[in-house]
Amino acid sequence: MIYTGCHLSSAKGFEAMGKNALKLGADTFAFFTRNPRGGNAKAIDPADAARFRELAAKHHFGKIVAHAPYTLNPCGAKEEVRDFAFRAFQEDLVRMEYIPGNYYNFHPGSHVGQGAEKGIELIADLLNQSLKTEQTTTVLLETMAGKGTEVGRSFEELRAILDRVELKEKMGVCLDTCHVWDGGYDIVNHFNEALEEFDAVIGLNYLKAIHSNDSLNPLGAHKDRHARLGEGHIGLEAFRRIASHPKLQGLPFIMETPNDDEGWTKEIAMMRKFAEERN
C-alpha cells in the first residue's frame, strides 16, 4: 500500500487539514508551514495539534509532509536571504514537534551564480546548525528540475549535501516526479533504472516521500511546470508503474497537481488503485 494525499491549506489548523484530507479520501497530506512566499508563521494552537494527533491515529494516517516556503534559500548570495532561511528553518523544526515523527521537506535552494559546490556547502551548513539529536522530524531534500541555478538537480548533488551533514539519521529525500523528469531522468521508459541509480548514488533508505506530478515539459527540459496526472509528458501508465513499485510501498504520495478538491479526490483514489494492482 501507499499513502496518498495532496497539499492542503494550513490556515485553519491541523485538525481542519486532517478532516479535509479524510473528505478527499486521503490518509496523508502536505501543507506549507507558512506563506509559500515567506513571512512569519501563524502561531500553533497546542490543543488543535493534539486533536489532530488523535484524528491521525484513529484513521491510520501515514507520515505528513510539511513544506518549507519557496523563498527559503540557504545558499543565496545575500546575507539577509540566508538569515531568513536559518530563522524560518529552525522555527519550523521547533513547530513540527507539535506533530512529532513527521517530515519537513524543502527545496535545497539556488546558488545564484556562486557555483553548485558553494551552494552545497551552504546548504549543509544550515542543516548542521539546525538539526538536533532530540528532534523527531525527518528533514527531506527535494529533487529539483535544474531550473536556473537550482541545487539538487541530480542525485549526485543531493548525495554531496548528505555527505556533509553530521546527523544523517535525521535526513531523507522527497522524489518529485515532475522535477526528476524535467531534470533528465526518464521515469517513463526507464523507471527501474532511475530507481536503481537513486539507490546506487543516494540509497533507497533515504527515500521517504514522493511528489506525484505530471509535467508540461518534455524530458530534460530543466523547467518546473506541473500538470494533472495523465495530462502531461509523463502519463498515467508511468504513474501506474510508480505507484505499484514494490520498493515504494508504505511511502506518502503527495499530489502537487494544479487541481481542485474534485480533481484531487480522483487522483488520490487512482493512485491508491494503481498501488493495489501490484503483483
Rank of each mutant, 00 (worst) to 15 (best):
I123E: 07
Y104G: 06
E134W: 06
D176G: 02
R82T: 07
F89Y: 01
A145C: 07
M96H: 14
T177G: 01
R87P: 05
H190Q: 07
D92L: 11
N73D: 14
H111Y: 08
D92S: 12
Y104Q: 08
E150I: 04
I120L: 05
F155Q: 00
P100V: 02
G148D: 11
G148K: 11
T143Y: 03
E142K: 14
I120A: 07
M144P: 08
E142S: 11
E121M: 13
E121L: 12
L93Q: 10
I120K: 04
I99N: 13
D163L: 05
E169F: 07
K118D: 13
D182W: 05
G119S: 11
A85V: 09
L122S: 15
T133F: 11
G113Q: 14
P74D: 12
N189W: 04
S154D: 11
L93F: 12
G109K: 12
G101R: 05
L126Q: 03
K168T: 10
F155A: 00
I187A: 04
M171Y: 10
A145Y: 03
Y70V: 08
R82D: 02
T177P: 04
L93K: 05
L126G: 00
F191E: 06
Q90F: 12
G119K: 08
G184D: 08
D125W: 03
T136C: 03
Y98D: 13
D176Q: 01
G101F: 12
R82L: 06
G109W: 15
A85D: 09
N189R: 13
F191G: 05
